[in-house]
Amino acid sequence: MKHTETDTSTQSVKKLSCFLADSEDLVKEAQALRYRIFAKEMGARLKTESEGLDYDEIDEYCDHLIVYDNIHRKIVGYTRLLGQDQARRLGRFYSQEEFELDQVLALPGRFLEIGRTCVDPDYRGSAVLTTLWSALAQYASAGRFDYLLGCASITPGPSGYAVDAVYRHFDARNMAPPGLQVKPTVPVPEELRCGRDESGIPPLLKAYLRFGALVCGEPYWDKDFNCMDVFILLPLEQLQERYSKHYLRGAQTKEAVSVFA
């Protein structure tokens, strides 16, 4: 897929660009970033650990959206995108491995799943996530998707997984109605839950909620990735509306954003 870059910077070199990885080398670099975040930082047990990469059979069906630091020449942000047509060829969405999604997938419209979202630790709190989300909104609009779906992780704190504390932070407007509640295939074991509020809502999940995403029930226990996954559903008309209000103001960050065509 072609991309063009809108330069909102007065500098001769744009610091950040966001585009679909268009070479095997870029995809492998993104998989190496995923490995550093999920295996080294979060403690995930990966079958591909010996290669220093995080990949699975789903990757070949996905588009890989990367944020690239043009000055230091490296990938600093990432998410993978699995559209409805790609999922049909694969035979499933990744989330269907963790949740029973029949009620959600019965909704009229087209679905886009995002996953493996991560940001280089040295770039957290910068414009990377803003750049990634603005490009994602454009990708979703170009593909005429109606819903964004995926999982957001709750990682362990000093006393365990603060699942209950995180859920207490959710606004009632962010909780899905009964007809859109999903069931995890592996519920969180009671002995791993703790009620202490140690870290608040994780940043990625907080971003979903800010855009109006729905939390669709109890989380899934992902033993391999050492985390609890919360299933979220976001009507993309809300993302487009909030994107236009919030991220179009991102021009003030003076970063480059890709426009997909």
Rank of each mutant, 00 (worst) to 15 (best):
K2W: 09
H3C: 11
D7Y: 00
Q11A: 15
V13L: 09
L16K: 02
S17T: 15
A21W: 03
S23W: 07
E24R: 05
V27M: 12
K28V: 11
E29P: 02
A30T: 10
L33R: 05
Y35V: 11
R36G: 04
I37A: 08
F38R: 14
A39H: 13
M42K: 15
A44E: 09
L46G: 05
T48H: 09
E51D: 12
D56E: 08
E57W: 00
I58Q: 06
E60I: 09
Y61L: 12
C62T: 08
D63H: 15
H64Y: 08
H64Q: 06
L65C: 03
I66V: 15
Y68R: 04
N70K: 07
I71T: 11
V76C: 13
L81Y: 08
L81W: 13
L81A: 04
L82N: 08
G83N: 14
L90M: 14
G91R: 04
R92Y: 15
R92F: 14
E97R: 11
L101C: 07
Q103G: 04
A106V: 10
P108Q: 12
G109V: 03
G109K: 11
L112V: 03
I114E: 01
G115Q: 04
G115V: 04
V119C: 01
P121A: 02
P121R: 09
P121M: 03
P121N: 05
V128N: 01
T131G: 06
L132A: 02
L132I: 02
A135V: 07
A137G: 10
Q138H: 15
S141I: 10
G143P: 07
G143E: 11
R144L: 04
F145D: 09
D146Q: 06
G150T: 10
C151K: 01
S153L: 08
I154N: 00
T155Y: 07
P156A: 08
G157R: 01
Y161I: 00
A162P: 13
D164A: 05
D164C: 05
F170H: 00
F170V: 04
D171S: 14
R173H: 07
R173L: 13
P178F: 03
G179M: 07
G179C: 09
Q181H: 10
K183T: 14
P187A: 07
P189V: 03
L192W: 03
P202G: 05
P203K: 04
P203N: 06
A207R: 12
R210E: 11
G212E: 05
C216A: 10
P219F: 12
P219E: 06
P219A: 15
Y220R: 00
W221H: 12
K223E: 12
L233Q: 02
P235W: 00
Q238S: 08
S244M: 03
S244L: 12
S244R: 07
H246P: 00
Y247E: 09
L248P: 00
G250W: 01
A251Y: 11
Q252K: 14
E255L: 10
E255S: 10
F260S: 13
F260T: 15
A261F: 14
